[in-house]
Design a protein around this nucleic acid. Structure first.
Lengths: 212, 212
DNA sequence: CGGTATAGTTACCGTCCGGTAACTTAGTTA
DNA sequence: TAACTAAGTTACCGGACGGTAACTATACCG
């Protein structure tokens, strides 16, 4: 599927427009799904919000299930990038955890597309659902590993990593429920304050993370 | 609607049976809604899970919307009882917060009926939706008050109460997503560990809340 | 035992929704 | 400009779902 050469010098050619419209579709669908749920959102809803008719959507997405799958993939891409960057830090366990959490939360505030975390899980069909669940499990596993590292190097007080990660990620996931850009705080501020508070709950030397 | 006098000495008379079946319906519907979402769950699904046919449900509930509303009310009853008990404690702010959180989390693990927190919000009609949202806002407001109290009495380190409560309740709400009774930990254990960890993140003297 | 309300059944209706067919319009390419 | 393709439209199909009508069987009560 080669992108056609840019024949005319005028910039917004068809391929670029298509890309923009595709992104708008993702953004719109993701916010609708997050707000009203997958089954509670009709393709007519999404089409109307974009100012087109329903069949037009089928030029961008093969069907509703595939749309949901792509959104989940985008969401997981951002989440995995966050934890990867946290892991790459040379700091100790608790600080690597905090960085990963900070970036994860900020990604949730940055785009509706990354906010599908708290949707119904049973909405996708078998194989795709398995793929998404496996990636989510791996993502959580990497967070648990950061907690274990922190316990091992003494920066995190001994605790159950599984439970600790559920708490921390649950608090983060909830952000997509209440955060609206344009509200009081920026996504960066929210991510900073929350990652500090949550890391403080696990740190062996909590005075290290003053809240404000 | 007076309950008919218990005419026969044999215990499971009709009124008692009806009560039990109603509870089973609530439990079943709540877990289905939590798992597959309101719109993703059909009345046929619920009826099948209960071993009856769909029209039988209409002898217990006027319609699907009203069923959702009743479940939300049950959920909020438990949540409000938790925060009420926390407020009633003679301890300082952070400990009252921790108690409320502990009881709230335990209520989420106790019954599927109390697990509707993370469902789509736009599923209910206007007036009932407003009533539920108002109760939820008041519930969160009481938690924020506990945080302010804690800051005032010095037991909580200065922070933004709104953000602190979103974090703490978000972590709690997420429990209904992963907790399954019969798993490794009991609801009481989960509630204890999580409330300690989350309170620790806010406490001005965190060594007060060792995690294990 | 007979009368009555209750609990449940099967059959069905109207609507909404995901998805497709056929067609129109407009931009790109040779 | 002519041919072609991409983008989007209206009209429609079939199935699923919320809800109701009409009927049957069972427990309660005088």
């Amino acid at each position: 599927m080669a992108i056609p050469r840019q024949g005319s010098p005028a910039f917004p050619n068809r391929a670029a427009q298509r890309e923009l419209k595709l992104e708008a579709l993702y953004e719109c669908a993701a916010s609708a799904f997050t707000e009203k749920g997958f089954h509670g959102t009709s393709l007519d809803d999404i089409a109307a919000a974009l100012g087109v008719s329903k069949p037009a959507l089928y030029r961008y997405v093969p069907n509703k299930q595939a749309l949901l799958y792509r959104l989940h993939c985008l969401s997981l891409d951002a989440a995995e990038a966050a934890v990867t960057e946290g892991e790459a830090s040379p700091a100790d366990g608790i600080e690597r955890l905090r960085i990963a959490l900070h970036l994860y939360i900020r990604s949730l505030t940055a785009s509706s597309s990354a906010c599908l975390v708290l949707m119904e899980e049973g909405a996708m069909s078998g194989a795709e659902n398995e793929a998404i669940l496996a990636r989510r499990r791996a993502f959580e596993g990497r967070f648990r590993r950061l907690v274990r590292d922190g316990i091992a190097d003494g920066s995190i007080t001994p605790c159950d990593p599984k439970l600790a990660v559920f708490s921390v990620l649950g608090a983060g996931n909830w952000v997509s429920r209440w955060f609206r850009s344009g509200g009081g705080r920026s996504g960066e501020e929210v991510a900073r304050a929350m990652s500090l508070q949550l890391a403080r709950g696990l740190a062996s030397v909590p005075s290290r993370y003053p809240l404000e």
